[in-house]
Nucleic acid binder design. Structure first.
Lengths: 218, 218
DNA sequence: TTTAATTTCCCCGAATTCGGGGATTTACTA
DNA sequence: TAGTAAATCCCCGAATTCGGGGAAATTAAA
């Protein structure tokens, strides 16, 4: 008896390749594929899946809402989330919403099939990074005294680097930062390179997002 | 540079086979093996491990206490728990104590090596069954928050625009966003222009900062 | 005192973003 | 049915950022 899988994903390319992968593997069967969850309940009733693969980032109603609806109407069906990013809140929300697994889109085809089986059997496959975040949610309410340790983890940015990063978060360009800090454009670039290195990022947007989310600057 | 692994396990047979497995695999190195944790701190200082494998069921001081001590004195070292049974309380306690991974003793040798790497890289490998239990801990405290009302101020962004903005916050370039959303580079640009107009900004960094601070995207 | 880290400045070429146009299709609505 | 909003795609030129180099002065630490 094959495991019936229904997929919700707005990325047509990915949807197609998953379709081929799953439907072409013995023991698996595609019950349905849908580019959005506008008709979620009807789609599920029609396709009768054992396992649902759901993209998190979807236009219109997103995957998080999707899981909530699924678990409300079909509590028995296990839903595995697929995402392009390991966004903290997404992970947390998806799990609270009732997701049973959480894998990245970059997961290898063979691993995806494994994960489907695991979910079907009542397990919860997660990428190790996601798993670490999940553990983090459980571990955080424990500690309060080691705030100094966390705040100390400001990625070892120097004062000047933090200043530059702060300017960046406020929307300034390199040229404007140079003006603001009374240094040359090239010096700003030097600092930026160091900041990228220390934050493990490669663009202004990533740096800004990390600076805000990790509360490196305020 | 090999990953240095130190093992604490009272089962001598298992300890030996793990020793042979790990020390005999390229990229791994046994830093030390100990049948109990009576001299935990000294043992760790002596062996200087990157990763610790710790059995939960040990005579005397058990593995849970062991993790607590390790994380208190060596917060940087990641500890992976090994257990014969998937006992609910053990899982929960170990995680709260600060364990970074939780695998069964029945795990295959190749998978054990994988898990060690994952833990070393900051991930949290767990058996699917353990993972499901962990999710259970998070799913039970269902909280009804009224955050949705505040987030209504989404600057009249369309779904597509929010999607693009979300990608931006995750550090994607125009090209990557185009790929992700299955649209062309030029369409991304069109959306970006609209986003800038609606958010009253003029650069990626400003858009990202506003998106995060105003909670336009999750 | 020698090393290491910080802060400063410069160049080049490639890649990316920005501003300001224009255009088409679809879908909803007045 | 005409009009509007959304989503899609295209071009040009200017401005900006990125990666990978190098280098010098100051300061802190070993």
């Amino acid at each position: 008896m094959a495991i019936r899988v229904t997929i919700f994903d707005d990325n047509k390319k990915l949807l197609d390749s998953l379709d081929i992968l799953i439907d072409g593997s013995p023991g698996f069967q595609i019950a349905g594929t849908f580019p959005n969850i506008s008709n979620l309940i009807a789609d599920i009733e029609k396709s009768q899946p054992d396992v649902i693969l759901m993209d998190i980032e979807m236009p219109g109603i997103n995957g998080i809402e999707g899981v909530k609806i699924v678990k409300k109407h079909f509590p028995k069906i296990n839903v595995m989330m697929q995402t392009a990013f390991e966004n903290d809140e997404h992970v947390f929300e998806a799990i609270c919403a009732g997701a049973s697994g959480y894998i990245l889109k970059s997961t290898s085809p063979s691993r995806i099939l494994e994960c489907i089986v695991e979910v079907y059997q009542g397990g919860s496959p997660m990428s190790p990074t996601v798993a670490r975040k999940v553990l983090g949610f459980l571990q955080t309410p424990k500690k309060e005294s080691n705030q100094s340790d966390e705040n100390k983890d400001d990625y070892n940015l120097t004062n000047r680097e933090k200043e530059v990063l702060s300017c960046l978060v406020n929307g300034l360009s390199y040229k404007m930062i140079a003006d603001q800090c009374n240094i040359t454009y090239e010096t700003v670039r030097s600092h930026m390179k160091k900041i990228y290195e220390k934050l493990h990022v490669a663009s202004m947007t990533e740096a800004v997002a990390k600076a805000i989310n990790k509360k490196i600057v305020m």
